[in-house]
């Protein structure tokens, strides 16, 4: 069983994804702002994080950069889940250290497939 961190200020999406991820057998940790999300990642060391971009207190991009700067979290797989859909946004997100980029509106089924693929690749 893997631990997935879900950091998004959209509570509807968090509640839906939490249900889906738990049904798939994962433990889920949820926070609704970037600062709390980063603190949670440092404390709980999840196996993967699904991260929104536009959030209060600390944006997803800032969280990404902080994670990649942290020696203990550097290898954490990050999937950005965001409504920012321009080519330049995708470039920025991946340059900041995200491993994958999913644009909202999204397919939960597809997102879960990407989560499983990342977990397999990271050996979790």
């Amino acid at each position: 069983m893997s631990t997935i961190a879900l950091v998004d200020d959209d509570r509807d999406i968090c509640l839906l994804l939490e249900l889906k991820l738990r049904a798939a057998g994962h433990e889920v940790l949820v926070e609704h702002d970037g600062e709390a999300g980063l603190a949670m990642m440092r404390d709980r060391r999840p196996d993967l994080v699904i991260l929104d971009w536009m959030m209060p207190r600390l944006s997803g991009l800032e969280v990404c950069l902080a994670v990649r700067d942290d020696a203990e979290l550097r290898e954490l797989p990050i999937i950005l889940l965001t409504a920012k859909a321009q080519e330049a946004d995708v470039e920025r997100g991946l340059s900041a250290g995200a491993d994958d980029y999913v644009v909202k509106p999204f397919s939960p089924r597809e997102l879960l497939s990407r989560v499983e693929a990342r977990l397999r690749r990271s050996g979790t």
Partner: peptide, 12 residues
């Protein structure tokens, strides 16, 4: 109704 605009594909 709150969820539908945020999703796409079969689930939507």
């Amino acid at each position: 109704v709150a969820l539908v605009p945020k999703l796409r594909g079969t689930e939507r």
